[in-house]
Amino acid sequence: MEKENLNPKESLQIIQEMIQAEKLRFSENGFIYRFWGWLVSIAALAHFILLQLEMYDYHYYPWFLTIFGGIFTGFYYGRKKEKTSLPVSGKILSYTWITISFFIFGIAFFFPVRAGDLLLFIILSHIAVGTIVAGAIFKFKTLLIGGFICGAMAFVSLVVPREYGSLITIVAVVAADLIPGYQMKRMYNKENKI
């Protein structure tokens, strides 16, 4: 590979980009991971209970909670963005999650019948990709492992009866969102001496 010669200004630019990426990591308190972890777990549990109660007309209603979750996340990051300009890694992560959300909400709310038995696989595999990218950017092993577990759950969803899909979803978000989210909070509090 050809070695690129950088002038001091370019070198400093790269260093500053690295600093901004590290600042992004230090500023992450895991709130949004905990928020989605609890939101999806509650929706999935309610879905499961409604199915067990044979309320087939309403069983998917709890998932509408995620629309409010999406709106809240948009406001949360919109507010945060005003305070700090995102480094390249932050922009990659932001666009990755926006694209993933677009596909997840699109398939879940507009084409669930066409997706059929693959619906949960599509949703969980997308979440797994986002979580693994986030884990790589934050250099956070728990998030990486959570992403892989979520990906594994996507495949598990293909082989277990559909009514247990909600329970698989709970396992996936506990691994990909709740555990990393609480660990991030602990690390953030420790770093900021809260």
């Binding site: 001091p8 200004k9 400093l12 260093i15 500053q16 600093i19 590290e22 600042k23 230090f26 770093e191 900021n192």
Partner: peptide
């Protein structure tokens, strides 16, 4: 690295940049 270390490094790089520009 701690957050304090990162901020100190950022300040150092910013100051160094002034010397170069």
């Amino acid at each position: 690295l701690t957050q304090k270390g990162l901020l100190a490094f950022e300040e150092y790089v910013n100051e160094l940049k002034k010397y170069l520009e």
